[in-house]
């Protein structure tokens, strides 16, 4: 049974303003009897998130920049541990975010296909089966024999997308990658993406494209300042959200009144 849940999950980052403290400095100032290190700033990125996902759930996450959407997605993926609270997951997770990162630049396209398939848990038999199909989807042909440091960003993203979408996910986590490559490729990629979302038992998507969320999701949450500000049926929530994001009007709902949200909402709508 596939499931994914967070219970009172919190995440606090420690950010040091002057960067990390060198070990030398720390030892020397300790020996001199000074203990004045620049105080790190605590960023409370997620605050007591409760979320319960079952098979069939298609969750869209709304919210303006910096509201905690991407961090939440990473916590669902198991990459960021909750600093307080609990996360439980059953099922194979496939995450589609930062897919352009984590390439071995000196290795060829083929080699990158192989090892990136392995990191997603494939075996040599799986890779042998999928290799050709992945290569064909990229349309990169002979360029696959080149070290990928020679690739253009567009080529790289094609490769990344083809590999990342070749696996069978039980839980699929997506961060804004519905448009990749040139126009021809975008259409192809979009279809492949929708197919993959269809096969997944649980799907979570972060997007600023409200239309896309409305098309594929059946549930939605609205993130604001690390909290779930509102949640419920996808259509209703998107209406509320669009209403709140309209310029001119003051941000209606946020529980803590603050100036920034008005600014942000103006920026988001602009």
């Amino acid at each position: 049974m596939t499931s994914l849940s967070l219970q009172k999950a919190n995440l606090t980052f420690t950010v040091r303003k002057q960067g990390r403290l060198p070990l030398k400095e720390m030892v020397v100032s300790y020996l001199q009897g000074k203990h004045k290190y620049p105080k790190p700033i605590q960023v409370h990125a997620l605050k007591g998130i409760d979320l319960e996902l079952k098979e069939g759930d298609r969750l869209g996450i709304l919210g303006h920049n910096g509201s905690g959407k991407s961090v939440l997605l990473r916590m669902l993926a198991g990459i960021y541990p909750p600093t307080a609270g609990k996360r439980e997951a059953q099922g194979r997770i496939v995450s589609l975010f930062d897919i352009g990162l984590g390439f071995e630049m000196e290795a060829t396209g083929w080699e990158n296909i192989t090892y990136r398939s392995y990191v997603m848990g494939m075996t040599p038999a799986d890779v042998a089966e999928k290799r050709e199909e992945i290569a064909e989807f990229t349309e990169l042909k002979d360029a696959l024999d080149l070290p990928i440091r020679c690739y253009s960003p567009g080529m790289l993203i094609r490769l990344a997308f083809a590999i990342s979408t070749a696996v069978e996910p039980e839980i699929l986590l997506v961060d804004e990658i519905l448009s990749v490559g040139d126009i021809g490729f975008q259409k192809k990629a979009h279809e492949r993406m929708l197919e993959m979302m269809d096969r997944a038992k649980i799907m979570v998507m972060v997007s600023h494209d409200l239309g896309a969320i409305q098309d594929v999701c059946n549930r939605a949450i609205w993130m604001n300042r690390g909290n779930i500000h509102a949640q419920g049926d996808c259509k209703t929530l998107i209406e509320q959200y669009s209403e709140a994001m309209k310029p001119a009007e003051p941000a209606p709902a946020p529980s803590e009144p603050e100036a920034t949200s008005t600014e942000d909402s103006t920026a988001a709508a602009a």
Partner: peptide, 21 residues
């Protein structure tokens, strides 16, 4: 152990890169 193919292929890439040059 389950991910052995992943790290083994990384080692292979490292060695190839080093000697290819």
């Amino acid at each position: 152990w389950r991910l052995r193919y992943f790290w083994l292929s990384l080692v292979k890439i490292d060695l190839n890169t080093r000697y290819r040059r």
